[in-house]
């Protein structure tokens, strides 16, 4: 499929035109559908009916529109619904322009995308002569592997990002402390051990570089945090402002049974307002995919 998943809604197809239907097209159509109404291919018959030239068959235009969708979508789509309105006459030999756009994404799964499309035919005087609505189901973009090159490009391994500055809010610490089961959430100025995760620009989504992984048309079978490790120089305290610099240091794939695990590893340096390092953490996120033909258990760096 030529459409990027995230770009489908409102997508405008590239205009096709000018297109001119020939007498031969009309004769071939007459022969194939056994409709020999002569004003579609014989100029004199058309003029006798008051037309300036042979009239293009409506069903021929419908056929062209349905084929156009396949051209635009880049694959053989399955037409689920189709309706067409003939608003004016198109004539053999005269200009026609085909325009289309996606007006609704009806459903979007890993396997199929169902779209509602609007297609219009416009004549050389820019008058719309034909309007069609089509619901079509097309196979979603198929890939079979994790695009590591793209991932490494966005992660910028080894390049520090930040600093991101976070104030450790007393209310956040107290709420956090309660949830993790601290008996007296307000009895210490030290923040909980794992609060370094709340100061992580990736966890907070202040830094989002690999979101495209979730949009990949690959079956996801889990994921999340893989590991976290922190070394503190001293405990962090409520009210402090901490500067965090994040650096991706690694990205790799491991296969586990029929799952393919994608790890992204980053290190965070945390410094206080004096610029003194107070903590260093190493964190790994994992996404699990069920890739076609995946097997084995070897690690792939």
């Amino acid at each position: 499929m030529i459409l990027d998943i995230k770009d489908k809604n409102g997508f405008v197809f590239e205009e096709i035109g000018p297109v001119r239907c020939s007498i031969e097209d009309m004769v071939r159509w007459a022969g194939s559908c056994d409709d020999f109404t002569n004003f579609h291919y014989e100029a004199s018959a058309a003029q006798a009916r008051g037309f300036r030239a042979p009239v293009i068959n409506g069903p021929w235009k419908a056929m062209v529109i349905r084929n156009l969708l396949n051209v635009w979508l880049g694959s053989e789509g399955k037409t689920l619904k189709f309706s067409i309105k003939y608003l004016d006459t198109d004539f053999v030999g005269e200009e026609m322009y085909m325009n289309g756009r996606v007006i609704e994404v009806i459903s979007d799964s890993d396997d199929f995308v169902q779209l509602k499309c609007e297609i219009k035919i416009t004549n050389g005087e820019q008058k719309v002569t034909t309007e069609a609505l089509c619901e079509v189901q097309v196979q979603a973009e198929q890939i079979s592997e994790i695009p590591m090159a793209r991932l490494l490009e966005v992660l910028e391994i080894g390049t520090p990002k930040g600093p991101f500055v976070y104030e450790i809010a007393k209310t956040d610490v107290e709420r956090y402390s309660r949830v993790i089961g601290k008996k007296n959430p307000t009895d210490s100025e030290f923040v909980p051990t794992t609060f370094f995760g709340a100061l992580d620009p990736i966890e907070r989504r202040d830094l989002c570089v690999d979101d495209f992984l979730l949009e990949l048309p690959l079956k996801k079978v889990g994921g999340g945090n893989a590991f976290n490790k922190v070394v503190y120089k001293r405990p962090l305290k409520t009210g402090e402002k901490i500067s965090v610099t994040t650096t991706y240091v690694d990205a790799y794939i491991k296969k586990s049974g029929n799952r393919t695990l994608l790890f992204r590893v980053r290190e965070n340096i945390m410094a206080d307002e004096s610029g003194i390092q107070v903590a260093h953490s190493r964190n790994g996120h994992v996404l699990a995919f069920a890739l076609p033909n995946a097997s084995g258990s070897e690690a792939v760096k």
């Binding site: 993790i180 089961g181 909980p192 051990t193």
Partner: peptide, 17 residues
Amino acid sequence: IVHGFLKAGYLAQMALE
């Protein structure tokens, strides 16, 4: 699913208590 950091938080807090 439960946050990994929440589970880690349970463990760390249990040990500190």
